[in-house]
Simulated scan of single mutants.
Amino acid sequence: MKQFIYTLEHIYTDEDHTAIKLLGFFDDLTKLEKIKDQALKFPGFRDYPDGFLRIKNEMNKVHWKTGFTSIIGEVGRDYIPEKDEIDRGSSVVQNLTAIFSVSHIYTIDRYLDDERIIGVFSSLEEAQQNVDELKQQPGFKEHPEDFMVGEIELNKLLWTSGF
């Protein structure tokens, strides 16, 4: 059975750019809503209250399995080759206190990074195994040191101030 995790992001566009802020990963919608209410107290988030986005992300799924050949820019999550289709038989992840988020970010020039969101994993071993495999794929093998693996506590606000 597939498992998923809820992700809370905030996206806004002003006259200069579009920005995405990752607010956290959650195993419960009630906890997610409490964190959203907390973030709404901060400047920026309260100025763009319609910018919150709740996403279901399949656990232990790798996006970008075949590597890449072109630059996508700073918001790689908009260009994930396939969206997570969470079927009715799936369930929210249970019995975890943290997940391991994997991304690949390399600097193109001083004003632009190329970012790809690889996936969320239930263990460090699972995350690292997938990173090791991806390092053999086009694009990734040219930038093997640019993977970021981070342990992120569930049900916690990651953004602690306004913008």
Rank of each mutant, 00 (worst) to 15 (best):
I117S: 03
D47C: 02
Y48P: 00
D84F: 03
L112V: 07
D16T: 13
V92N: 06
I99M: 06
E58Q: 15
I35E: 06
T18Y: 06
F121K: 11
H104S: 04
L22R: 14
I105P: 00
L96V: 05
I55Y: 03
T107C: 11
L22M: 11
R54L: 11
P43E: 12
F25A: 10
R116Y: 12
T69L: 09
Y48G: 00
L29V: 02
I80M: 14
Y12V: 05
T18L: 07
T66Q: 07
V131E: 10
Y12P: 01
D114R: 09
G24M: 12
E82L: 03
F26E: 05
I86M: 06
H17M: 15
G119K: 12
G24C: 13
E33P: 00
P49S: 10
I72P: 00
V102K: 07
E115R: 08
R110D: 14
D37M: 07
T66M: 09
H17Y: 15
T18V: 15
T13E: 14
I20K: 12
G76N: 15
F68P: 01
S91H: 04
S122M: 09
G76Y: 11
F121E: 10
G24F: 03
L53V: 10
D109M: 07
E58T: 15
Q38C: 00
G73W: 15
V120I: 06
I55S: 05
I11K: 15
I86D: 08
F100G: 04
E85P: 00
V93I: 14
V62L: 09
R77S: 14
